Computed example of a mutant assay.
Amino acid sequence: MAEDPLALVPDFPDEDPSTYPPIQPGGSLILAWQVRNKRVVLVGGGNVAATRLVHLLSASASITLIAPPSGLHPETAYRLKTHASQITYIPRNFQPTDLTTSPSTISLVLTAIDDPVASTEIYTLSKQLGLPVNVADVPPECDFYFGSVHRDGPLQVMVSTNGNGPKLAAMIRRRIADSLPRDISTAIVRVGELRGKLRKLAPGKEEGGEEDGVD
């Protein structure tokens, strides 16, 4: 019989487990997902799609927006005209070939349409193709959620309720933003510049670049 792998795990008698962060199952893995210059398909052109566009444009994604002209929100139309180099606009309803033609070039799929049946079809097709997908306002059909985000230069603070309370998340985000120092973004830029200089003076001496912490 193979040896129990847990029997190989050493004991650490001097460690105090009470100092470790507690595990709270059921949360989401909150990441800063880099989609710069990567293709993201956004189906829909209404007010929710306009909100999604703000996130995607701020992340410098390469966006394919699929929606008939009659369904465009004024802000969506404005983004299409002001960011034409970043958004490929397809002026019609979604078709399966929008995903199946070249799925390997797609990083994310987002839907923001008032058609539950069509949304579920897009979700199902995305899963078949192995594409991460978010169906607006339908948490069970989301591989990831959009939180309420505060942005100030390089600083990004996101509050997520795992799809349970978007308005509550926005309220918490505003309170956090109001508590931040006024010139925090300038300080962060300067810290980044200092880190860059330190890396040149002592390559490999600085700790990793990930921001990791659990409260």
Rank of each mutant, 00 (worst) to 15 (best):
P25W: 00
G26H: 08
G27P: 03
G27S: 10
S28Y: 04
L29P: 06
W33T: 13
W33F: 15
Q34H: 13
R36N: 09
N37T: 14
R39E: 13
R39A: 08
V40P: 00
V41I: 13
L42K: 01
L42W: 06
G44I: 00
G45T: 00
G46M: 05
N47A: 13
A50T: 06
T51W: 10
V54F: 07
L56D: 06
L57A: 07
L57Q: 01
S60H: 15
A61M: 09
S62P: 03
I63F: 09
L65H: 08
I66L: 07
P68E: 08
P69W: 10
S70W: 06
S70E: 14
L72M: 08
H73V: 09
H73E: 11
P74H: 02
E75C: 07
T76F: 01
A77R: 08
L80W: 03
K81I: 10
T82S: 13
Q86I: 08
Q86T: 06
I87G: 01
T88W: 05
Y89T: 07
R92A: 10
R92I: 04
N93K: 12
F94P: 00
D98Q: 00
T101C: 10
P103L: 03
P103S: 07
S104A: 15
S104N: 13
I106S: 02
S107W: 02
S107P: 03
L108A: 00
L108P: 01
